[in-house]
Amino acid sequence: MASFAHDFPFDPAYGRTLDDLRAVDAPPAPDGFAAFWRGRYEAARAVAAEPEIGPLEDERDGVRIHGVTYTSVGGVRLGGWLVLPAAGEPVGHGFVVGHGYGGRQEPGPDLPLPLPSAAAILPCVRGMGARGLVAGIPDEADRHVLHGIASRETYVIGDCAADLWCAASALQELFPGLAGAGRLGYLGESFGGGLGALALPWDERFGAAQLTVPTFGNHPLRLTLPCAGSGESVRRYHRGHPEAVDVLRYFDAATAAGFLERPTLVAAALFDPSVPPPGQFAVYNALAGERELLVLEAGHFEHAGLGQDVAALGAARRRFFGEWLGR
């Protein structure tokens, strides 16, 4: 059981040992779960992403970084960054890189990419980050996570998953050599990890994924666990609107993981004040395909061993994608 000095009014390890966490299961899928998500995916695949590449913004870590925009469901135009090999060599691999709650204001720490000669799109999903702002959608995590929660059709999390699918379409439109099944990899942390678990089971274009401290796992359990992240906003809302659980059942990352058959590396933390570890491990435990677990001492928390966790994750990520996509 992880233990750190902290001033949170709750235990970010939630009293669980690693063995306890390895035993957390996923809620059963509600009626029509798979059909709901496949329908959302098919609608996203019908969208012409029409990506547009902006000027060069940076060059580092062996890559060139450009701004990029593309179209997602509902005709929403979103922005982000396009990462290309700096030497101009042919693109041999492709990645979609999701972000944490709060969005991204710059490409951030997701570079270098796990494989050489790779291109990646780092999208800002709707409502998140300066390049993802959309009128009417809150840009603060505590309000964003509640937007449209009255029904499964209007809940913003479903459209955010579609933004990832459309980002994949944009990457393949730019690089037709990446078209086809299993040609793309996915990286997502926290919010992006949960979105990845929701989006990837239905999209055959992805051959492997890495999810770091994924959120949205086992909502019934999450609703009982205080935290410092967006889940606390959902907990507060649920107290006044208990019917929200019926919508949340369709957006449970652990439930979706039961349909995810692509090789997946999950980095899950023993101690995390923002995304309760039981939910993170629920996602890993439910995975239906080849899976690999990297246990982190802590997530969303500065600690003495953070550098070691980051280094271990980087090495695991390179080896994992080298094994599954580097052939």
Rank of each mutant, 00 (worst) to 15 (best):
P12H: 06
R16D: 14
R16W: 04
T17V: 05
D19S: 15
D20V: 02
D20E: 05
D20R: 04
L21Y: 11
L21D: 04
D25K: 10
A29F: 05
A29I: 07
G32L: 11
G32Q: 05
R38Q: 14
A46K: 09
V47Q: 10
V47L: 02
A49L: 04
E50G: 01
P51M: 13
G54T: 02
G54N: 10
E57N: 03
D58N: 10
H66W: 02
H66S: 07
Y70M: 09
V73I: 15
V73S: 11
V73F: 02
G75E: 10
G75R: 09
G75F: 08
V76M: 12
R77P: 14
G80K: 07
G80V: 11
P85H: 02
A86S: 13
A86E: 14
A87P: 00
A87L: 08
A87N: 12
G88M: 08
E89H: 06
E89C: 05
H93Q: 02
G94S: 00
V96D: 00
V96W: 00
Q105H: 13
P107Q: 14
P107N: 10
D110M: 08
L111W: 00
P112E: 04
L115C: 00
S117M: 05
S117P: 00
A119I: 05
A120S: 09
A130K: 14
L133P: 00
L133K: 13
V134N: 03
A135I: 06
V145R: 11
H147V: 01
G148R: 13
A150H: 13
A150S: 12
